[in-house]
C-alpha cells in the first residue's frame, strides 16, 4: 500500500516553548490512525500544521507527493484534506442539507455563481452524503436546532463532500455521550472501510481509540513517544508512564471522561 501522507520532522515552537518537535510518521491508504496524548501534548498544534492554520518552524508534510506546508487551509482542502473540528463549526443559519450543499458548491467551484439558486444545486449528492452519515431524515432541519452528536455527523458529511484523500478529525467525539461516541466512530470506520479515504484523528476516549484505530501514535510534550497497534500501545511502558504512570489509566480516563 502506498503512503497517503508523509510527515517529516515537523516542529513548531511558540515563543521558546517547543510545542511539537520532530514529529515523523506516515499514513497508509485506507488507514485509520489515532493521535493521542495528554492535554498539551501538541496534538492540535500538529493538526493545525497539517491543514494550514499554523506554519511549522521546520519539517515537511506531503500528501500523495504534494507538499502541503505553506498553503492556506483552503488550498490544502482543495488538495484533498477534509477536516472536522473539536468544537463543531457549521453554518448555523442554514439547514442541514444546505450545509452539505455549500461544501459541494465549493467542490464544484461554483462559489462565485450569482444567479443559480443555491438550494437547488447538488441536492441528490448532498442527500447521498447525508444518508452516508444517517442524517437524511433531518435534512430539512435548521442546523441551529441539531443535537450535538448530529452536528458532528453533519460535519463528517461536509468533510466527505470533497472526496478527500485524507480526513483530519480533531476530537471527533468530544462532548458526546459515550454511546454516541462509539456509534460515530463505527460510522467513520465504515466509511474508511469502503475505501478512498484515510483518517487521522485525535481522541481522549481510549475506548474509542482502541475499538477503531488501526494504528496509534502517542505524543507527549510535542514528541512522538510511541507508535503501534492498540495492544502494543496499551502495554508500552513509556506510554503508561506518561499517562500518570498507571496501567489502568486508560480505563479510568474513559470512565470519568
Amino acid at each position: 500500500m502506498t503512503n497517503v501522507l508523509e510527515v517529516r520532522n515537523l516542529s513548531k515552537s511558540f515563543g521558546g516553548v517547543q510545542a511539537v518537535k520532530d514529529v515523523h510518521f506516515d499514513l497508509k491508504e485506507g488507514e485509520f490512525l489515532a493521535l493521542i496524548g495528554p492535554n498539551g501534548a501538541g496534538k492540535t498544534t500538529c493538526f493545525n500544521m497539517l491543514n494550514g492554520y499554523l506554519k511549522p518552524n521546520a519539517g515537511s508534510v506531503s500528501l500523495r507527493g504534494q507538499a502541503l506546508i505553506g498553503h492556506p487551509p483552503r488550498k490544502i482542502w482543495r488538495m484533498g484534506v477534509g477536516r472536522t473540528f473539536q468544537i463543531t463549526a457549521t453554518f448555523l443559519s442554514m439547514t442541514v442539507v444546505e450545509n452539505v450543499q455549500m461544501a459541494l458548491i465549493s467542490h464544484h467551484r461554483r462559489v462565485y455563481d450569482l444567479f443559480s439558486r443555491a438550494t437547488r444545486l447538488y441536492v441528490d449528492e448532498a442527500m447521498a452524503l447525508l444518508e452516508l452519515v444517517s442524517m437524511q431524515d433531518q435534512a430539512g432541519r435548521a442546523c441551529s436546532e441539531l443535537a450535538y452528536g448530529d452536528l458532528k455527523r453533519l460535519e463528517l458529511a461536509i468533510a466527505l463532500a470533497h472526496e478527500p484523500a485524507l480526513l483530519l478529525m480533531d476530537e471527533p467525539t468530544a462532548g458526546m455521550a459515550p454511546s454516541e461516541r462509539l456509534a460515530l466512530m463505527a460510522l467513520t470506520a465504515e466509511i474508511v472501510a469502503k475505501g478512498g479515504v484515510s483518517v487521522v484523528f485525535t481522541e481522549h476516549d481510549m475506548d474509542v481509540v482502541f475499538a477503531h484505530a488501526h494504528r496509534i501514535l502517542v505524543l507527549n510534550r510535542g514528541e512522538l513517544i510511541a507508535e503501534g497497534t492498540g495492544s502494543e500501545i496499551r502495554t508500552n511502558p513509556l506510554v503508561q508512564e506518561v499517562y500518570l504512570g498507571g496501567g489502568s489509566v486508560f480505563e479510568a480516563e474513559s470512565a470519568h471522561a
Binding site: N51, K75, H162
Partner: peptide, 8 residues
C-alpha cells in the same frame, strides 16, 4: 472556520 475548511 468552516468556510475556510471547505475551500473558500
Amino acid at each position: 472556520t468552516r468556510a475556510e475548511a471547505i475551500g473558500i
